[in-house]
């Protein structure tokens, strides 16, 4: 029998990230060097520049973003990743880049993020489960990395894999999904300036429950396309496999672009519930391509998006 379980924290205990960032700046301005009063680092670890691709809408709090996650490697409940991800070792970390590239190899995470232009990208995030958030990612364009390793002419797709380490990723001890988690993009999607590899949120290193140390973010697609804790990137000529598509092809297409006109067979995608505003938050109409139509609609010109969902 399920019993009433006491909530883990009160909303009043949550400080919006913006607030404590401001507070921190004030203290720095006042000459306070060690501002660890709130148990927070004295300086943001990742230097970022603002981006024209950011939305002006107010981001969700750091707490919202880090306590409400789908990351089945750590369990299927939304609160599981925040509870279980701490045991993941993210350093050392390397990413194998192979397939149709000029410079294949195993790249250390530090080398990957060295020299890239880290930007703050405040993106809308729309989950296939019909909820949404606004997330201030810290990341760089995937195209930048691909240019560095050299894309060969026959490469048409990019595939990604998440780490498999059941000793630390306890959700992988059960077979709810086929591990490793896999995702893929068409080359033009991968090269699109909106597509980023994120290494942080709010300028902080990526929290483990959000896919540390390096994850994909493709804001016009459902959240599950934005694969977390990447250990492999391969360039291929053929369309790669994608985990949810393998599990249930009629429910999760390869493209999985946010599309209010194509329902998930079991629920509507016409509207979404913004997360973070409490019980009485107003439901919102979902926008085509999650509102990024101006930037990405051209990629799908002439394609029947009802069939290629």
């Amino acid at each position: 029998m399920h019993i009433i379980s006491a909530p883990k924290f009160k909303s009043s205990e949550i400080t919006p990230k913006a607030d404590w960032l401001n507070r921190r700046q004030l203290m720095i301005g006042a000459g306070a060097v060690a501002t660890t009063t709130f148990g927070l680092p004295a300086l943001a670890k990742l230097k970022t520049i603002k981006s024209k691709y950011s939305t002006t809408r107010t981001p969700n709090t750091f707490k919202d973003i880090t306590t409400y996650n789908n990351f089945y490697e750590f369990g299927t409940s939304k609160s599981d990743p925040a509870e279980n991800a701490s045991r993941l070792t993210t350093s050392p970390w390397s990413v194998t880049i192979d397939g149709m590239v000029d410079k294949p190899g195993k790249y250390a995470f530090e080398d990957i993020i060295k020299g890239v232009s880290m930007e703050e990208r405040i993106y809308r995030f729309r989950c296939v489960e019909a909820w949404s958030m606004i997330i201030p990612w810290t990341g760089f364009q995937l195209s930048e990395l691909l240019a560095r390793v050299g894309v060969q002419s026959g490469a048409k797709y990019v595939s990604f894999e998440t780490l498999v380490r059941p000793s630390e990723m306890i959700g992988q001890r059960s077979n709810v999904l086929e591990w490793p988690y896999r995702e893929g993009l068409r080359m033009d999607e991968a090269m699109h300036p909106l597509t980023i590899l994120a290494a942080g949120i709010y300028g902080e290193d990526m929290p483990k429950q959000n896919g540390a140390p390096l994850r994909l973010v493709v804001p016009w697609k459902y959240g599950f396309k934005s694969i977390k804790s990447i250990v492999r990137i391969s360039l291929t000529a053929r369309q790669p496999q994608a985990t949810w598509n393998m599990l249930s092809p009629r429910e999760y297409g390869f493209y999985s672009n946010v599309n209010p006109n194509v329902d998930h067979p079991r629920w509507t995608q016409a509207s979404e519930r913004p997360i973070g505003g409490g019980l009485f938050t107003r439901r919102k109409q979902t926008q085509m391509f999650n509102g990024y139509g101006q930037e990405v609609a051209g990629l799908y010109k002439g394609m029947d998006l009802t069939r290629n969902f």
Binding site: I4, P7, S11, K63, Y68, K78, S79, G276, L279
Partner: peptide
Amino acid sequence: VVYFYWAVTNQLGTDPL
């Protein structure tokens, strides 16, 4: 009643609904 009270006062986690 208890769950509804917790939901209204935002004590049911990130997604009270």
